[in-house]
Structures are given as C-alpha cells and as structure tokens.
Simulated scan of single mutants.
Amino acid sequence: MEQVNRPPITVSSINFDRLSWIATAGVHSHHDAVAAMLADELGRADVVAPDAIRPDVVTMHSKVEYQDDVTGQTRRITVVYPDEEDLDAGRVSVLTHIGAAVIGLSEGQSIEWQSPKGGWRGLTVLRVHFQPERMAALSA
C-alpha cells in the first residue's frame, strides 16, 4: 500500500514488541494488507522506553481525536488490540487502516495512504485525550 505523507512516529518498546508480533501474524491472515501497513509503520518508528513517550503521542489504548482529511469529519476513538475491538464503543483495532495509521503519531501530525480500492485516505491527529503508556511507566 503506497503512502505519500509519512511523518515521523514514536512507539514505545512495549508496544513495538507486541505490535510487531501482531503485524507478522496478520500478514498470514485476512488482515494481510493492513498488517503490511502496520509492519511498514513499525519499521520506520523511533522506538523508545515507555517513560520517554510524550503525552501527545498515540499509543495502544490511547483515546484520540482525529479529522478525516477526505471528509472533514472529526471522530474520537480508542486504539485497541484486535481482540478488544468494539466499533459501537469507539474501540478501533490497530489492524484497521485507521488504527494502523494513528499509532505513533502525535498531535498535529497527518498521514496519507492509498486504500485497497485505490482511493486516497488521510487523517490528522487533533488531540490525544488520554494516553496510558506514559502514565503506567511513571507509576511503576
């Protein structure tokens, strides 16, 4: 999947290890295109210790508000692992295009990608309302 706008991203070492495993497993499943996108994103990520993650970076279980750059719509989601997905509750799997796109972005960053149907998609992270990664590291 071709990507045009690829801003720098940051991922904690804990998220990196688990997401790498998920991306590798997903390549051999019906999530192959999204898993490849996630693997590509992880391959260019700056991997840091959990306590070095800034609070404005999207990590797993972050509550994030983003704008769809194609439709202009704003949406709030929580980025979760595939087995935790619940779209009615706004819990979006990292093995979806939106989930794979937002992981590691910080507030104000935008990303674009080509969808499997050939159209272009893009989003901009407006705000990270809650980010548990750093909170957990600081309380440990």
Results as ranks from 00 to 15, higher is better:
1 M>S: 14
4 V>I: 13
6 R>E: 05
6 R>K: 15
7 P>A: 15
10 T>I: 06
11 V>Q: 08
12 S>G: 09
13 S>Y: 02
14 I>C: 10
15 N>I: 09
16 F>A: 07
17 D>A: 14
17 D>V: 13
18 R>Q: 15
19 L>C: 12
20 S>N: 11
24 T>C: 10
25 A>I: 12
25 A>Q: 15
25 A>M: 15
26 G>N: 04
28 H>Q: 05
29 S>N: 11
33 A>M: 11
37 M>N: 13
38 L>F: 11
41 E>R: 04
42 L>T: 07
42 L>N: 01
43 G>K: 13
43 G>H: 14
44 R>T: 11
44 R>K: 10
46 D>G: 10
47 V>I: 07
47 V>M: 02
49 A>R: 14
50 P>F: 10
56 D>T: 07
57 V>W: 00
60 M>Y: 02
62 S>Y: 03
63 K>F: 09
65 E>H: 03
66 Y>M: 00
66 Y>S: 01
67 Q>A: 13
68 D>N: 15
68 D>Q: 07
70 V>Q: 00
72 G>V: 01
74 T>N: 07
75 R>K: 14
77 I>L: 05
77 I>S: 06
78 T>R: 15
79 V>I: 04
79 V>Y: 12
81 Y>N: 14
86 D>A: 13
86 D>R: 12
88 D>W: 09
94 V>R: 04
96 T>K: 12
98 I>R: 03
98 I>S: 03
99 G>A: 03
101 A>V: 08
101 A>S: 08
106 S>D: 07
107 E>Y: 00
107 E>Q: 03
108 G>A: 00
109 Q>C: 14
109 Q>A: 15
111 I>Q: 06
111 I>K: 07
113 W>E: 09
116 P>H: 06
117 K>P: 12
118 G>F: 06
119 G>Q: 05
122 G>F: 07
122 G>W: 04
123 L>C: 14
123 L>T: 01
124 T>I: 12
125 V>R: 01
126 L>E: 02
128 V>K: 04
130 F>T: 06
130 F>K: 02
131 Q>C: 03
131 Q>M: 06
131 Q>A: 08
135 M>P: 12
